[in-house]
Design a protein around this nucleic acid. Structure first.
Lengths: 186, 186
DNA sequence: CTTCAAATCTGAGCCTATTCAACTCTTTCT
DNA sequence: AGAAAGAGTTGAATAGGCTCAGATTTGAAG
């Protein structure tokens, strides 16, 4: 993980890792089936932590729908570069799209699904508090919001120059009007 | 393009294409810089046609926002497997994420941007007709809608078993409530 | 201490995208 | 015709992920 972050996922060869660990290439493959497994292990670490932090927010979300949604999303974003560089994220995303049937592809999709579900549960929570229109399907809205925050995150990792602040501003520009539309009539 | 569709993008080696064309491997590379160039040429062909068809819809969209939006989206989807298999789409998407700085990555991003812009212009069109709330930012809504239809399309190409009808049903489930929220008050 | 099977480890070799220096063919100029 | 520049072609060589038939180590049993 450290070498991937420091030297770049693609630049680091399996042979390099084997040397670091003072074993042979074959032994690396004895523990991780593919180079992508090493990457996905890091992604899973990262997302699991973010999901746990998200649950804490779900317990006591801000009353305002907009603030609650953006709070959860900022949580995701602020943590996102802890273990993974943008290049690593790109590689992981590419992997999950190109090989959806492999264990790694499924694993990434599963993590995505759990994030989308968490957003949906936040929407449901806000509905139960009467701040979001009760006739909205919280699953559909959760998916819609997740799709948006995910798409913007993809744009973020695709652009090495983009800052977290820019990402947040862009997402806010899309989530704010949506949150307003979702609000229960007073 | 034909061989990629028939035998699979990954299974087809450059050497195979060279044999088909009765030239050497080096000559293939003289015309297309990478294997991805061959793929992206097909993606561009596909998307350009869909954009042109979309312009026709923009000229005279259905009055109902929901119908107008879904009509445009179905247009995109129905054309999507004309030249590209799901596997080819996956490879192209993976390429665009993993190598955003290469000409191919930029090219794909550009096509995506033009699709998003077309959706935004449809929203603006519906606003000028008074069927969509005028205070909504048509750019933000266009991007929001594009992000959704694109995310669902990615899910579609990731799952070889999913049919176009299932894709449409899922997108409709998200776009319908959104279209309702966007409607101008009567 | 010896034996043997299971668990680990090893690295040469395979595969395919990509590169590039040498070669051939075409066109232009004298 | 001869020559030189330019355009196009070639395929052997390179790189890095991954495989697999042995070789080595471990640990339980006698």
């Amino acid at each position: 993980m450290t070498r991937f972050q420091r030297d770049g996922y693609h630049s680091v060869r399996i042979e390099d890792l084997a040397e670091d660990a003072e074993v042979s290439v074959g032994t690396v493959y004895n523990y991780y089936g593919t180079k992508g497994d090493l990457l996905m292990a890091t992604v899973a670490l990262e997302v699991e932590e973010v999901l746990a932090a998200g649950e804490a927010i779900l317990l006591a979300p801000p009353a305002e729908p907009q603030e609650a949604l953006l709070g959860l999303i900022w949580q995701y974003y602020d943590h996102s570069l802890e273990y993974l560089s943008k290049e690593m994220w790109r590689a992981a995303m590419a992997l999950s799209i190109e090989e959806p049937h492999t264990p790694n592809g499924r694993r990434y999709a599963d993590l995505d699904g759990r994030l989308a579900d968490q957003v949906a549960r936040l929407v449901a929570r806000l509905q139960s508090r009467g701040r979001v229109a009760p006739d909205l399907d919280h699953r559909a809205m959760g998916e819609l919001i997740f799709n948006t925050l995910n798409a913007m995150f993809i744009e973020f990792v695709k652009d090495d120059g983009m800052t977290l602040d820019t990402l947040k501003a862009r997402v806010a520009a899309q989530i704010r009007p949506l949150a307003r539309l979702m609000e229960a009539p007073a």
